[in-house]
Amino acid sequence: MKLTLKVWRQKSKDHKGSFENHQVEADDHMSFLEMMDVLNERLISNKAEPVAFSHDCREGICGTCNMVINGKPHGPSKGTTVCQLHMREFKDGDVIVIEPWRAAAFPVIKDLVVDRSSFDRIIQAGGYISVNTGQAQDANAIPIEKDTAAQAMDAATCIGCGACVAACPNASAMLFTSAKVNHLALLPQGQVESSRRVRAMVKQMDEEGFGACSNTGACEVECPKEISITNIAAMNRMYMGAVIGAQDQV
């Protein structure tokens, strides 16, 4: 199939970006990123600068890849990262618009590559259980209800790709933050410090310059791991309880 790509090119954070048009020949079996590889190989053979894009595992789990394809983070397929998106989802003659994640808290590094270190800082603020190596008791000492463990697992599948932020008209990081808050709060091990955790993580999230959630639900639609916005509601609840109930003045 013959495709027309409109790819976002931007030299660095401080440069202005713009779209660049390219024609590409693809086939059904190719993944979207392999199609990008083909484009880049051609650019290189013409001694031109290849399009910079993030990618690593190419099996949908590392969360590195990030492209907005025709307005949709990770492209048209539901529950799929760009690296798992295949060209059979497109047809001959399609025009494909490829853009980076757009959010103030994710500045563009180059072309389609953005800086998502804000996510790391949110986790550093409290996305952990404070246990040192060696302090743990036997793994079966605390039974956890199967459904509860499964719910925690569903929240924990977040790959930290940032599609939720990219999809959100407000660039809010609520789905990402709440998934981690909820994953840990659901487990008895994480329950202990959940009040402190939710306050610290929300504070960091706000400081990073993400927008406020207006419950549009776009994040849930675009999340490649299909994480539910019930996590956001749970975090809202937890946050209120934590702030109102806490003994300290923060």
């Binding site: 025709n70 757009r102 959010a103 008209p169 406020a212 549009t216 639900g217």
Partner: peptide, 23 residues
Amino acid sequence: LTNKSAKQSRYAVAPKNTSWASS
């Protein structure tokens, strides 16, 4: 206003992943 500044720029192709009212 804060949400606008958090988003900064919009996509060239409008995404269809929310109800019109919500956004």
